[in-house]
Amino acid sequence: MTRYAMITGASRGLGLALAEALARRGRNLILVARQRDALEAVASELTQRFGVEVLFRACDLSEPLRISGFLLELEESDRHIDLLINCAGLRSYGHFLAQDWMQEQDLIEVNILALARLCHVIGNAMAVHGGGQILNVASLAAFQPGPWMSNYAASKAYVLSFSEGLREELRQSGVKVSVLCPGPVRSAQRLIERLASSQRVLSPEEVALYTVRALARNRAVIVPGRRNRLLTYGARLGSRWLVRKVAGAINLAYRPR
């Protein structure tokens, strides 16, 4: 039976970098994102460069019915996924009460509900086969409240807590669970445009390489970058009132222009 690594949010940014890092290591892939044209281009390039099988499926993870159809296809195809990477995610910025509610709901659907559903369905299949690995992508924002990004930060806190809990639950089944908490990554995201020229901000490729190596060591919580790891300690050891004040000030300073 052919084994695949499945990556959501794989058409750009960190998801794309993870797909390339795994293809370079000879992994067959199933790529999931919303944009079919982008996925098709990525699949073609990775197949040509690395000689691996790359399947793809355009699926909007904010739509539960689309997810149901996709999961049914996976079940009927009898393809075995031994690595699931939940990288798809949405971000919102600004005063929560001023945001469009449908966009905030989509964020919850993608960042929390779709991620948990994929873990449940594919995690069960992994347990039946006696093993597998799940990587959920959270954020440094998971370690503290995030004023001006309250819904986003809360969704990533869920991912962090859920992943650590699931790791213990699945330990005896042979399914390994890790959570990736990257800091800002050099990309097209407007929130970090002012950080993009900084040497302290890792590229998607650097984060992906660090992550793949950490997965091979079965690390529970993966935080690329020494500075980012230090920030997690500050968030956990500092007073809650001070942490949220500082986080709010930082988020305001780097607000989208």
Rank of each mutant, 00 (worst) to 15 (best):
I122Q: 02
I122P: 01
I122W: 02
G123I: 13
N124K: 14
N124I: 15
N124E: 12
M126V: 14
M126H: 08
H129P: 13
H129F: 10
Q133F: 00
I134K: 00
I134P: 01
L135S: 05
N136C: 13
V137R: 00
V137D: 05
A138Q: 06
A138Y: 00
S139R: 00
L140Q: 10
A141E: 05
A141C: 11
F143V: 15
P145Q: 02
P147F: 05
S150D: 01
N151Y: 08
Y152V: 13
A153I: 03
A154E: 04
K156Y: 02
A157V: 00
L160S: 08
S161G: 13
S163E: 00
S163N: 07
G165A: 11
L166Y: 02
R167L: 06
E168N: 01
L170D: 03
L170F: 14
L170N: 07
S173F: 07
S173W: 01
S173H: 02
G174Q: 00
G174S: 14
V175H: 07
K176F: 07
V177E: 00
S178H: 12
S178R: 13
S178C: 15
S178L: 15
S178F: 12
V179E: 01
C181G: 09
G183H: 00
G183L: 01
R186K: 13
R186E: 11
R186Y: 10
S187H: 04
S187N: 05
Q189C: 10
R190C: 11
R190V: 12
I192S: 07
I192M: 06
I192F: 09
I192W: 11
R194V: 08
R194L: 04
L195Q: 03
L195H: 06
A196L: 06
A196D: 09
S197H: 09
S197C: 15
S198L: 13
S198Q: 08
S198E: 13
Q199E: 12
V201L: 13
V201R: 04
S203A: 12
P204R: 05
P204C: 14
E206C: 15
V207D: 04
L209C: 09
L209F: 14
L209V: 14
Y210W: 03
